[in-house]
């Protein structure tokens, strides 16, 4: 079974102590969206929602150009009643979504908020998210302060950069 194999592989990695899983990448991408002196937010996006959907998620990459560790402490938007920071815990094949108090952005690093991991969560959406919408969202960092970004709404099945075809998958 695939799960068993996956589990064993994970166990092997854990035993060998190679499991330093961090959702950080050092490579820079183009298309920067918002810059404060210390923090750069790139490619913020969300998925189109159904008419009755109450929840949505936004993803982006955040780079800390300062000499100090920083931390995303909150997000706010007009689109939803509540805007929170969330993560997913992958528990042996079960996905558990949980609220987090903050997301660490270490100095000199790029942190990816991406599907299946950390994200900005919209709870009780006030309206449907339509393909092509730009949603103003304010991010607040412990050191860098407030950063305004525009979240672009992509297709419902979009993957961002994680899967090649995700961005261009057509709506039916």
């Amino acid at each position: 079974m695939k799960q068993t194999r996956l589990f064993t592989t994970l166990a092997v990695v854990a035993i060998l102590g190679l499991g330093g899983c961090q959702s950080t990448v050092h490579k820079m991408a183009d298309g920067e969206t918002s810059i404060s002196k210390k923090i750069m937010v790139q490619k913020p996006w969300a998925r189109a929602s159904a008419r009755m959907a109450k929840a949505g998620a936004a993803f982006m990459t955040i780079t800390n150009h300062s000499m100090d560790n920083d931390r995303l402490i909150s997000a706010s938007s007009e689109i939803a009643k509540f805007t929170e920071l969330h993560t997913h815990i992958h528990d042996n094949g079960i996905m558990r979504m949980r609220k987090v108090e903050h997301i660490d952005i270490p100095k000199g690093e790029m942190v990816a908020l991406k599907p299946g991991g950390d994200h900005v969560m919209f709870i009780n959406l006030k309206r449907k998210l339509n393909l092509g919408d730009k949603l103003p969202v304010t991010l607040e960092f412990k050191n860098a302060g407030k950063v305004e970004v525009e979240v672009e709404v992509k297709a419902a099945g979009a993957m961002g950069g994680t899967h090649k075809m995700g961005d261009v998958h057509k709506m039916h």
Binding site: A57, H88, A156, H163
Partner: peptide, 20 residues
């Protein structure tokens, strides 16, 4: 579930691409 904000859209997006 349809209120699922991330995990289900990821999975269904993958299924859609598999089907395409």
């Amino acid at each position: 579930y349809t209120y699922c904000p991330d995990i289900c859209p990821t999975s269904l997006g993958i299924i859609a691409q598999v089907l395409d």
